[in-house]
Simulated assay, not measured.
Amino acid sequence: MASGRTSSSKNNLLLRHAHVARWRAGRWPATLRALLWSAAAGLLFVVLNTLMRKLSLQLDPFETQFLRYLTGLLVMLPLVFSAGLAAYRPRNVGGQFTRGAVHTLGLCLWFIAIPHITLADTTAIGFTTPIFIMFGAVLLFREPMRWERWAAAGIGFAGVLIVVAPQLTGQGGVYTLVMLASAPVFAASFLITKALTRYERAEVIVVWQSITVTLFSLPLALLNWRMPTLGEWGIALVCGLLGSVAHYCLTRSYATADISASQSVKFLDLVWATLLGWLAFGDQPNRYTLVGGVIIAASTVWIARREARRPG
């Protein structure tokens, strides 16, 4: 009996500490919270992409794309049913399907190009997406583009170039252009997400992204379909969970502050990827990676401190 009371007291203490931590975090400036949400999303996406790479070596890339969003929907169904279907009914169904179609197009371009160009080229081109997002935020949402945001984005991108420039081959031909075309498409998808956060909850956006991308990806997946093994289904389920949580963090970031304010932290993804490659596969970072990583991390810390001094 005493043991039960002790356990209950510990649980209550943990809940109180969690409540206090959440209250303190809620007092942080909105832009700082957006940066933290975006950084968490980036870390989760790096882990996700590592598993997706493993799965795409075993299955057709388009089938991998379909399974990732199908399982993402499956892991969210318990939340949907517990809250009730009405809680996840979107206010703008057309906007949800538009976002899903645009995001599916970006994924298709990415998967068409990835077998034909190097990983270094892919990384360099992928980091142009935040630049397109920042321009779009100015044009579409009239977000204030303070000089600090441009500076942090420029310094972070310079850090990326230091890492990947020595490895660029330039031999991708037309597929390099296809990969480049995916960057503004993904930027458009994220800008639509930002627009949807004005009247949709993050959970609703993430659920409907899984629904729409799954539907749009199904015809492509059926072209070269092979029934996944039990192990492949397991990897796909983990990918679905990671992807759903990552997109939730990203959507919370967009809902918390200007979308342009969080783009500089995107360059931290290269740091996460380097660390994961070292821990998981023993990939030793070269000097260019170390120098570029330090520059990227420094620019992120700097913009976070600058934004934290501004009122929420």
Rank of each mutant, 00 (worst) to 15 (best):
V207H: 07
L73T: 04
L139M: 13
S260Y: 06
S244T: 08
F97E: 03
F81W: 15
F186R: 02
G84K: 06
G100V: 06
W150D: 03
F135H: 03
A195L: 12
T6N: 14
R198H: 12
V294D: 07
S8N: 11
A34Q: 04
M76I: 15
V164T: 14
T289N: 11
P78N: 08
N286P: 02
L105C: 11
A113V: 05
S7E: 15
L109M: 11
R24V: 09
H116V: 01
R306K: 12
Y69R: 10
Y69N: 14
R305A: 14
A221T: 11
T122H: 02
P219S: 07
A39V: 09
Q96M: 15
A18V: 02
C249D: 01
L43P: 00
A124K: 00
S82E: 13
Q96K: 06
R305N: 12
Y175E: 06
L196T: 03
F281E: 05
D283P: 02
S253P: 04
A221H: 09
S210T: 13
L218G: 10
L140A: 10
I235V: 15
A202P: 01
V46N: 00
H116N: 07
P184N: 09
G282E: 09
L13F: 14
A30M: 09
G282M: 08
G173D: 10
L250C: 02
C249K: 01
V206E: 04
A255E: 04
T251D: 08
A40K: 01
I117P: 01
T31F: 06
P78M: 08
R146D: 08
S299D: 03
S244N: 00
H19N: 05
C239V: 05
V238M: 08
L140S: 04
P285Y: 03
T104V: 01
V294S: 13
P90E: 04
K266F: 15
L57N: 13
Q58D: 14
S210I: 00
S38Q: 14
Y175N: 10
F62W: 08
T289C: 08
Y288T: 08
A195Y: 11
L218K: 10
F281K: 05
L270R: 01
Y199L: 03
N92R: 15
Y88D: 05
L191K: 00
E143Q: 05
N49W: 12
A202F: 01
W147P: 05
P184I: 07
H247N: 09
E307H: 04
S299F: 03
N286W: 05
V238C: 09
E63D: 04
F97A: 08
K266E: 15
R5M: 13
Q284L: 14
L67C: 10
P228D: 11
G243Q: 03
H17T: 07
G26Q: 06
W150I: 13
E200G: 00
Q209T: 14
T122F: 09
D60T: 08
I162T: 10
G106W: 02
T123R: 00
F157A: 06
E63Q: 15
L74M: 12
A83S: 07
L36H: 05
G72T: 05
I303W: 03
P285N: 04
L35C: 14
I235G: 07
W37C: 12
L57Y: 13
A124Q: 00
M227E: 13
W278V: 05
P130Q: 09
F267K: 04
L242W: 07
R252G: 00
G4K: 14
A86R: 15
A273Q: 02
G136V: 03
A120H: 06
L107Q: 12
R68T: 12
S253L: 04
